[in-house]
Design a protein around this nucleic acid. Structure first.
Length: 114
RNA sequence: CGAGUGGGCUGGACAGCCGCGUGGGCAGGCCGAAAGGCCGUCCAUGAGGAAAGUCCGGGCUCCACAGGGCAAGGAUAACGGGUAACACCCGCCGAAGGCGACUUCAGGAAAAGUGCAACAGAGAUAUACCGCCGGCCAUUGCCUGUCAAUGGAGUUGACCGUCCGGCGGGCGCAGUCGGCGCUUUGCGCCGGCUACACCCGCCUUUCUUUGGGUAGACUCAUUCCAAUUGGGCAGACUCUUUGAAAACGGUCGGAACCAUUGACGGGCAAUGGGCGGUAAGGGUGGAAAGGCGGAGAUAAGCGCCCGCCCGAUGACUGGGAACUGCUCAUCGCUGUAAACUCUAUCCGGAGCAACACCGUGGUAACGCACCAGGCCGGCCCGGCCGCGUUUAGGAGGUGGCUGGAACGUGUCGGCAACGGCACGUCAAGAUAGAUGGCUGUCUUAAAGGACAGAACCCGGCUUACAGGCCCGCUCGCACC
RNA sequence: GCGGAAGUACCCAAGAGGCCGAAGGGGCUCCCCUGCUAAGGGAGUAGGCCGGGAAACCGGCGCGAGGGUUCAAAUCCCUCCUUCCGCG
């Protein structure tokens, strides 16, 4: 993740939830907003309602891997927050990837080459 | 072979590509005056048996405290050992459960004191309702003594009725008749008859007991009404079965005597009232003041006494102790402390978000100054900012941070928990939190599917867990 | 990381060892009131699960779950589960 840093502060999350563009399905929720810089910032949220610590870690790693593998296609200078919902705990990697790509395309985060 | 019981181990392995955290190397690249930072590359390494729950015990750090004690609050609880310590572990004792292997137990004190024990029951830690017993009083009945009156009555007593249920049998005794003998008013022996008592068997009646059957009534119901049918409640009747029971009364005669009436007494029984004794019996309860049997004594009763058993305490034996056992002595006490309490032992408080260091912006105080300086800008012009020190503060950062009551192997001591010694090894240290994605091979019944993520560290406990492997032991069946 | 509270019928809930099939209210059913409804007033049953039965009815288990103490547990004790709150 060469052009991406992680999003950590709570006030940035709040601003994104209030002012960012939203798209969601039953597995994931995606928030996107332009941040004015050149690098992307990624935040991941998995609440304790999803499952135990092992399950939450697995979802977080899969989401980070999905983001890493599609980083080259993404627009620059964006703040991105991915929220995992309850059904994500029982979803496979392929299902998560499909949901992420569909939501990101809907929000214009990914320039669809093909 | 089947069923069971206790314990231990394991919790997939290997390879390729892309990617991540930490540590180290590099003559590499970029930034920087330097310290150093970033990138790149190579090497090493990278979650558990429970990392979980946070239920106990410690290390470590800070705070309080001269040291210690008391109080409050809390925890623990047979005994001996292990341990840094423990609510842990091992051994052992006791109790409960199991045919057994074995399992479970907050397992001190109820005789220091206080509290609680609903309902039921006469009574709940002592009671007196019924019952049993002894006095007292009242009433009634019966028996009886003395006296008086009236009546009956004169010397072997006799007789009657109903009935000891009925029938049959047996034994004994008595009476009587006949025969014989003798010591001849009599006695003995043999035989017959009769009556009575007792015993046995069968039948009858009544009461009691055991187990069945069932008419009718009442009641509930199959959509309404009626019938039928079924259920519920109660148990008349009947069958069967256990045990027990089936009496005597009257009349006449009569000296003594008897009957009636009256007076004065005595005794017994019943009923009622009241007083006292008793704790055997009642059948309620989880619990009724040791249990079973017996004798004497008593007004009636009672471990009051005796035999056997049970339990507690003390002495003695064995054991290191809890405890145990042959015996002896004394005693017979409800349960509850996961009710208060008492006894013994232990605990100062908070927690790595502790704590130590560096420290932005903004704020306060003091000093200096309106110059100089700093920032933006290639430069001029221009624009913006007061500066320094100190205190408090503390975004954030660094340390704390992993070599330790450590792990492995061997050996020695110990029943064991565990401990001693020798050799070897260094195995995550993150900070929004590193193990993921894709693919292949092997083991496997199944790996695409157990439970589950370190957060300062350690010892335990508890809880979750797909499966796999190994060992000890018990019971049952079969065979040799 | 540390500390605290709660769990009772469909809902809100009382009860703090025994008379507890478990107070009370909402809800439910019926009646009154009204031209009709709402509101208001009055009365009443059952309260969940399992088993037997055609029904009347009978029996057992249930106060978050599982154990224990006690003659007796919603209540006392232990372990676990769930939910909520506070510090930071």
């Amino acid at each position: 993740m060469k052009r991406t840093v992680s999003l950590k502060e709570n006030h940035l999350f709040r601003r994104l939830y209030q002012k960012g563009k939203t798209s969601a399905d039953s597995r994931l929720a995606l928030y996107v907003r332009r941040n004015g810089g050149k690098t992307n910032r990624l935040g991941l949220t998995v609440s304790t309602k999803v499952g135990c610590a092992v399950t939450r870690n697995r979802i977080r790693r899969r989401l980070r891997e999905i983001y890493r593998l599609h980083e080259a296609q993404m627009a620059e200078g964006m703040d991105v927050v991915v929220v995992a919902r309850v059904r994500a705990g029982r979803s496979s990697y392929r299902q998560l990837e499909e949901s992420f790509l569909r939501l990101a395309g809907k929000l214009g985060l990914i320039q669809q080459g093909g």
